[in-house]
Simulated assay, not measured.
Amino acid sequence: MSFPKKYKTLINNTFSEREYSITPIRYEDRFKIMQWRNEQLYHLRQAKPLTEEDQEFYFTNVVTKLFEKEQPDQLLFSYLKNEECIGYGGLVHINWIDKNAEISFIMDTKLEKNEFEMQWGIYLELIEQVAFKELKLHKLFVYAFDLRPHLYQAIEKKCYKKEAALKEHCLFEKQYIDVIIHRKINPWN
């Protein structure tokens, strides 16, 4: 199978900062991504662990179609350090009319303990290049279960402001938890 490498909706497809970059999600990274998602299931909107068959189906039947759309509902990227995939994410739930999107990002589970804030900071710089400069979106937001307060610290350092707390919004381990939403308006508008 020939997997696409460029999104039709983007002029630039790779965005770099020092040795880090984001590039359209690579087929070769699919099983690393599956592993990280399964390891970090507790903070994702994913009901059960993924299988290799699930991941293959998703890449073949969902992800490949995103590359050819003028206005896909999501743009997914492999997050690289010196060309090695250490995370992935993108712009999801893109609203082309209102010009906003949710930010999605997970990193290699091994990096979470010591590099969480640094990796989030670099990733946000890169994904903002896509969203604000390339696509001219008006607003980005992070929707997060209230399980990782260190996430708020990392994104607030990059000028994301707490916009809302949806009280008891999600059922997690038989208990209702809040969802916290942070946002950033395009500073280049």
Rank of each mutant, 00 (worst) to 15 (best):
G87D: 10
K8T: 07
V179K: 04
W120M: 13
F15M: 07
P4A: 05
A47Q: 13
K8S: 08
S78N: 11
L171H: 05
L44K: 08
H43S: 04
L44P: 00
M118R: 05
P24M: 05
L166A: 07
W120D: 03
L91K: 06
K32G: 06
T60E: 10
G90E: 07
Q71G: 11
W96S: 00
L124H: 08
K99S: 09
L137K: 11
G121R: 10
N186R: 14
Y7S: 03
Y42N: 15
H93K: 14
Y7F: 07
Y58P: 07
K162L: 15
F145I: 11
E68A: 10
A154P: 03
F132R: 09
S2R: 08
N12E: 14
K5F: 13
I94H: 05
Y58H: 12
Q153E: 13
K174G: 13
N38D: 00
I106K: 06
T9D: 12
E112Y: 01
L171D: 04
K81Q: 15
E52I: 00
D146S: 04
Q175M: 12
T64L: 01
I106Q: 14
E156R: 05
T64A: 03
K157W: 07
K133H: 15
E70V: 01
C170H: 14
A47M: 14
Y160C: 03
F15A: 09
P49F: 04
R45K: 10
N61F: 01
K158Y: 03
L126M: 14
A164Q: 08
E115T: 08
V179P: 07
K5C: 12
A101G: 00
L124W: 09
N61C: 05
S78F: 13
I181D: 10
K136Q: 15
A131R: 13
W120N: 08
I127A: 09
N114E: 08
L75W: 05
K113Y: 02
I127P: 04
K136A: 14
F3S: 01
D29K: 10
Y79D: 14
I33W: 04
L126D: 14
Q46R: 11
Y27V: 11
L135V: 11
K48I: 05
F31H: 09
E125H: 11
W120S: 06
K110F: 07
E68C: 01
L41R: 01
I185Q: 03
P187N: 13
L10C: 08
Y152V: 04
P4R: 05
N100H: 03
I127W: 10
L151W: 13
M107P: 00
E163D: 08
L66K: 03
P49S: 06
D29H: 12
S16H: 11
D54F: 01
E128K: 11
Y58Q: 05
K6W: 00
T60Y: 02
K184M: 09
E117F: 00
K184D: 14
G87S: 08
P149A: 10
K110M: 02
R37K: 02
F105E: 06
L91D: 12
V179Y: 00
T14L: 01
E134P: 10
I33S: 02
